[in-house]
């Protein structure tokens, strides 16, 4: 009996020690190294008290061809929360510029950015953009890097290198990909899929999260309305019950 208790106690200690060891390899951030998305329903599913890691790469994909602007909107919204007033380097591939044009400076406040924060790379190769991102990640004045690529996603090696650069410098990289870029394997910490939702909202799926969820995300994703008090809806629905950057969850939960 005593022998059994001793064995059980030993096993418990071993497991505790191994857990402690494992924790070193897991991505458990210090306080202030993670940022909440600003949408309550999404934040409830993220690891408790952690939110989204600052020193990591986050990938945002458009679900369909027409959803790229919404994906960029969500990415810029995350970027603004990550940057926290510091400079934001944004970059577009050449095809992205010719298809969608440039970000419009007067609309930047709608996603929480100030135009004085923005440094923009106006059309370059994806390789050059990734190089610029790596340079910017090592610059102390830069708060966040947001890259937009419509046609091509970086391969696994490149994304691995960039996420290590993010981790080393504790600065985030938000990579916004078009629907045509395809689902390449990626080293990103999170991967989101965004599509436009009716009534001025976004349909958000969290496809991948390194680590564990605090609670299981709804299979249908979340529907978020960042500007709910704007654009009164035509079907007479009352639009005043929600304030800016708050969320309603239409499905799941």
């Amino acid at each position: 009996m005593r022998e059994k208790t001793y064995q059980a106690e030993r096993r418990r200690l071993t497991v505790a020690r191994l857990r402690q060891k494992l924790q070193k390899f897991e991505l458990i951030p210090a306080v202030g190294d993670a940022v909440f998305s600003g949408f309550d329903a999404i934040d409830a599913c993220l690891p408790p008290h952690h939110g989204l890691l600052r020193g990591a790469m986050h990938e945002i994909c458009a679900a369909k061809t027409g959803d790229f602007a919404s994906a960029v909107g969500f990415g810029a919204h995350l970027g603004a929360r990550f940057a926290d007033g510091k400079a934001v380097l944004s970059g577009q591939t050449r095809q992205c510029v010719s298809e969608h044009g440039q970000p419009y400076a007067l609309a930047l406040p709608t996603v929480g950015l100030d135009r004085h924060q923005l440094i923009h790379i106006d059309g370059a190769d994806l390789t050059d953009l990734l190089w610029a991102a790596e340079e910017a990640l090592s610059c102390p004045a830069v708060g966040c890097v947001v890259l937009m690529s419509l046609e091509r996603a970086p391969d696994f090696t490149a994304s691995r290198r960039l996420s290590m650069a993010c981790r080393a410098s504790n600065r985030p990289l938000v990579l916004v990909l078009g629907a045509e870029a395809g689902q390449a394997s990626t080293a990103a910490t999170t991967r989101w899929q965004i599509s436009a939702a009716p009534h001025n909202g976004w349909q958000v799926y969290l496809q991948r999260l390194r680590g564990s969820f605090a609670q299981t995300p709804p299979t249908a994703g979340w529907q978020v309305f960042p500007w709910r008090e704007q654009l009164p809806l035509s079907d007479g629905e009352a639009a005043s019950e929600n304030v800016q950057l708050h969320t309603t969850t239409a499905y799941g939960n």
């Binding site: 909107g73 044009g101 007067l106 609309a107 001025n200």
Partner: peptide, 13 residues
């Protein structure tokens, strides 16, 4: 002083 959501985020060239 434009109210938000009156200008698009992407303006075509």
């Amino acid at each position: 002083p434009l109210s938000p959501q009156t200008r698009p985020l992407f303006m075509l060239c």
